[in-house]
Design a protein around this nucleic acid. Structure first.
Lengths: 202, 202
DNA sequence: AAAGAGTTTGACCATTTGGTCCAGTTCACG
DNA sequence: CGTGAACTGGACCAAATGGTCAAACTCTTT
């Protein structure tokens, strides 16, 4: 594969196929638990062919993580300091919950990585993510100070939002096992919204 | 190793040593990501010696899971139908949060297992756990009906408690990365308690 | 102190793993 | 259509993995 040239049609398509297969496999078993063989099989390619498009198992994983990290932070970036406080936060929560429903594999990929100590993503957490959260936490703090929101620790508020919304993706099996036949996302949105409304209303 | 005889002193001690080492390793890397070599090294034993006390890697993992599942459900079992509703739930939450602080490895062991689809523990979730949760959910429902608690979906209430409290153990690296120098457990108890107090107070 | 049970480990094994090589095939383009 | 670049996959490799075995060592009991 060349270095600086524009990628060919095939390269674009095959790399996407591989990343999709890798998401499927890595999100279900974590980095160490996944094998190139599984990824190749899932992608419908031979193992050497996969390694023709990516330098190594690690390179696939990192490419995935990188590509998704940004997307994952989008909802928080959209939190508008000039909007109506409670509505802004609730709409952030709604977006996060939707992502848990629509992209559970992505959520689980991160969950696996972080539960296992975030060995390959720690820098981004401490850098990018912390910066973004600090910025938005300041906004929340101001809203609280202005009496437009009940007083809360803004960082822990974010933790609670992440915990609650991602729980439905990351612990999906458990949620379903406990609920029985009930669909998790039938009641989840209303419950989560009510919880945070009560917590944040002045 | 004999089958029905009482275990010897050495057996008791070594099996405990191995389970402790296995908890350290499995909780950090999940089942597939962990190796017998790592567990043996952590336990300070040779690999064949580890396999003298447990039939296989899988047997160690299952023994661990089994031993811990019970402990993990204890706080919920302690929820008293005859107690004061809000106080009962808050004290359940406090206990869960303490477990996240004092036994993060145990929490991560379950997190790993469940994120990866709970292949070796699903029966217990659907059986034991569901039964216990259903029982306690009925209690909550009654409390709500009696107007002694704000109306909430009891199952989702439990999910939110698990999500929030276990987040501090399972996502510890991320929480610390985002908080910077702040200790997570300095503010967490008050935040969590406030959140649920506001959610559940009539 | 002798004997049998219980314990320990070095050497070994088959399989799986991430990764390489190279000969062959397909594709884009002048 | 021809040619060089891009692509593909069977055979291969060294290391790691879960697990076995038998010989040796230690402990308890009589």
């Amino acid at each position: 594969m060349q270095k600086e040239q524009a990628p060919t049609r095939i390269q674009v398509k095959k790399r996407a196929t591989i990343l999709e297969a890798a998401l499927e496999v890595f999100s279900a078993q974590g980095f160490r638990g996944s094998t190139l063989h599984q990824i190749a099989a899932e992608a419908g390619l031979s193992k050497p062919n996969v390694l023709y498009y990516f330098a190594s198992k690690e390179a696939i994983y990192k490419a995935l993580l990188e590509r998704l990290l940004d997307t994952w932070q989008d909802p928080l970036r959209a939190l508008d300091p000039d909007g109506e406080p409670l509505e802004e936060i609730l709409s952030y929560i709604r977006r996060k919950l939707q992502m848990s429903r629509d992209f559970p594999r992505e959520s689980r990929l991160f969950a696996n990585e972080i539960v296992q100590g975030a060995p390959r993503i720690y820098a981004a957490l401490e850098g990018e993510l912390k910066a973004l959260v600090d910025e938005k936490a300041a906004v929340i703090d101001q809203w609280c100070a202005q009496g437009r929101l009940a007083r809360v620790h803004p960082h822990h508020l974010f933790f609670s939002i992440w915990a609650l919304t991602q729980h439905y993706a990351d612990f999906d099996v458990q949620v379903r096992a406990v609920l029985g036949t009930q669909e998790p996302f039938d009641a989840a949105p209303e419950f989560v919204e009510t919880l945070f409304r009560r917590t944040l209303s002045v």
